[in-house]
Write a protein that binds this DNA or RNA. Structure first.
Lengths: 199, 199
DNA sequence: GTCTATATCGCGATAGAC
DNA sequence: GTCTATCGCGATATAGAC
């Protein structure tokens, strides 16, 4: 890679990092192109040499997230037999998902807002929810195939589980929340495993 | 009430109804003042004779929702002893909440988006979540006072429960969803009551 | 590739006739 | 109270020098 390209790549990285910072602070919708370029210490016009729009930038960030998610789940998913009604397995699953959301919170936030921006009639949020809980749904269907009782349709249950994580990840700002990551994961695990009635 | 005032009130109602329709279709953030006035068959300027801003209009709609919610919960809440681990009581609670969200979906959608618009660092979504699940939290604390085991801190559990309802109410567009209201309420009830491990 | 400067535009909000 | 017409701001996106 030549020096010219390296410089360009450097700027692109700087823009991405600035975007993450700004998304975390202002949210995706409230972040202006100029907020990003200013944070990155570049001129406004430079943005468009790297990304066609804010949305395209988000897609690039999403690709990075997907890579990370794939690695994480690959590292975890060595089980031959999945059983979400097993406490340890459920906790591990939720823990990995929560960790990812925390590490990539700016992108999660942005995706969430972006889905909302399409309007409630577009079904974009439902799409996000079902796509992101694809793995969960598959596990639930395995359970059902074994004749185990489920609370409801696998896709709906999976979406509900993913929904709780997403909304809490958005609502609980890391700087202000009184709850530790472990506390959150433990609580959600207990709630989703045994519900309010307990073991 | 004179004819003049009646006409004005009529326009105000028309604007509110138009706003609800537009919020349901486009979402709150995407809805422009002109979308509302056009839908109501009025001129742009007329809007400001009734509301100072889109946000003020939302506040007015919220007041209507609060009235309805108060009535609903008053009609239901005759129990001397609350027990969220009791299937019937939990289902009733969730059913009432779900029904309200469905009947006032445009306002729910708008409140949700409005909270997001303040940015993730503002904590506005967490505020919404805790305020709206105030009653739930109180019931959970009763349970805890009786020495019953809870999945976690009452406020967090309540927020998680409210969060599932909110996000599903937003994501499941009434026109497109394959799930009936009963199916959703049954599923959430089962999930929150006994979790994935079953009874 | 990066900068400065600017064209362009949508939209919120107001002024003033009726 | 309601209308039409318009002002002005803020933000995206582009043009052109370096």
């Amino acid at each position: 890679m030549g020096v010219r390209k390296a410089k360009a790549a450097e700027t692109e990285v700087a823009l991405k990092e600035a975007a993450r910072r700004q998304f975390a602070r202002r949210g995706y919708l409230n972040t202006k192109i100029t907020d990003i370029t200013a944070d990155a210490g570049r001129a406004t016009g430079s943005f468009y040499d790297h990304f066609a729009s804010k949305d395209e930038l988000l897609k690039a960030l999403l690709a990075d997230l997907h890579d990370a998610a794939h690695d994480q789940f690959a590292a975890e998913g060595g089980h031959g037999h999945h059983d979400l009604a097993d406490r340890d397995q459920l906790r591990t699953h939720l823990g990995v998902a929560w960790g990812l959301m925390r590490d990539h919170r700016p992108v999660m936030v942005a995706l969430f807002e972006s889905a909302l921006a399409d309007g409630p009639a577009s079904g974009a949020l439902w799409e996000r929810l079902t796509e992101d809980t694809e793995v969960l749904r598959a596990h639930l269907e395995e359970m059902r195939a074994e004749g185990r009782a489920l609370p409801g349709p696998p896709a709906l249950v999976a979406a509900a589980m993913g929904g709780v994580l997403s909304i809490l990840a958005y609502a609980l700002t890391p700087e202000a929340t009184p709850y530790s990551d472990d506390e959150v994961v433990d609580t959600i695990t207990a709630l989703l495993l045994n519900g309010l009635a307990g073991a």
